[in-house]
Write a protein that binds this DNA or RNA. Structure first.
Lengths: 208, 208
DNA sequence: ATCTGTGAAGCACTTCACAGCG
DNA sequence: CGCTGTGAAGTGCTTCACAGAT
């Protein structure tokens, strides 16, 4: 478990690590203790050499002629990705989409908690949704200085999105998950990743 | 507007075309008629040469020293991507996530219609949601032969996902949008694209 | 003068192939 | 003998740079 990650790590490598974490937790839940790059590759449809090279950026986790200890490798990757802690998130936009995000069951088991909810629409401010009370997005800065978060989730209309992301950046939120159909200029130092099902469908239609 | 798309087109190019469509429809809605690759590039944070090369795979849409006619280019790309028709979709899985997908307002304006809904859980079969009656996923093949679709949307638990995708493939559904947190072996000839917010969050945590 | 279209160069990611080690 | 770790080769995508058109 190297503290010094020396070389620049390709973005694609980082994107694959969570996949490795996912299959390793399945495997280490079972009795199987040792796993090879080929087995992982079969499960994920990734070339085994790719997996070995990806892992080599972070340390020497395997035993030659043997494979990887599933639990040990899992722990190492969890540590690398910072998944051994809770991540606090703020949702901006509690329209239909935002409420579905609030209700999504997949975040909490992975350590991602929505701890604040905001909206720009006056009618929605003050409403209780589950454990949260919706706050005025114009006071986002104030609220997040009291109760800081690591991640912003944006579910506002496209035209509002750049402003909301800028506001989040001002509050020191460096990671944003954007659900709105807006092209994004990520502010310097911030990471914005967008989830847009329509874009995905529109590119699949070409292939069909 | 070339009918013959000769060269193999990089997947990344296809993924960018919907972005071009989106900004072009914004632009051609306004009075601006001419647009340059630099203007498009500024809006999307894409290098202008990238845009020109992407477009060159499909034809000669620009005028040298001038730029592109926004409306003309939009039409061409809409035609290339097949967005000038309706796409019929079947949703499999009407749990909390599936119901949110059914309620999502973003599909219909872009020509994507959910025309069938299925579930594996007996308790949910027969329920009416909006215009649709949930059908038994075990009879998917039967229902889709009556009422064929172009796209499948999968929102079932991870363990069910491979089976559902295989079933859809049997019914001739070549494009699948998968919302479940499952690693997918796309059946030969089928295109599966996954939307998994947790994977995105987990890779952003490395950067933070 | 300006902006397109495109070979060629550059860069980044993937896969090969094999030395090294258990 | 089997599987890892990794330079080197291969592949594919992006950007440059400039001829060509208006």
């Amino acid at each position: 478990m190297e503290e010094h990650i020396t070389a620049r790590i390709p973005a694609r490598v980082i994107d694959r690590l969570p996949l490795y974490v996912r299959v390793l937790s399945q495997i280490s839940g079972s009795e199987r203790q040792v796993v090879t790059s080929s087995e992982l590759g079969d499960r994920l449809v990734i070339h085994p050499a790719q997996i070995r090279k990806d892992l080599s950026y972070f340390g020497h986790f395997g035993r030659q002629g043997h494979g990887y200890d599933a639990r040990e490798l899992l722990q190492a990757l969890v540590w690398v990705l910072g998944l051994d802690r809770q991540w606090r998130m703020a949702l901006v936009g509690v329209g239909q989409l935002g409420r579905a995000i609030l209700g999504y069951q997949g975040f909490v088991p992975e350590g991602f908690w929505i701890v604040e909810a905001f909206d720009l629409v006056a009618r929605r401010v003050g409403r209780r949704i589950g454990e949260l009370t919706v706050k005025d997005a114009r006071r986002l800065e104030e609220a997040l200085s009291q109760n800081p978060v690591d991640v912003g989730i944006v579910a506002v209309p496209a035209q509002e999105t750049p402003g909301v992301i800028a506001q989040l950046a001002t509050c020191g939120v460096e990671a944003v998950l954007n659900y709105s159909p807006a092209a994004i200029h990520a502010p310097p130092g911030a990471h914005v990743r967008s989830m847009d099902p329509v874009l995905v469908l529109q590119s699949m239609t070409f292939l069909t």
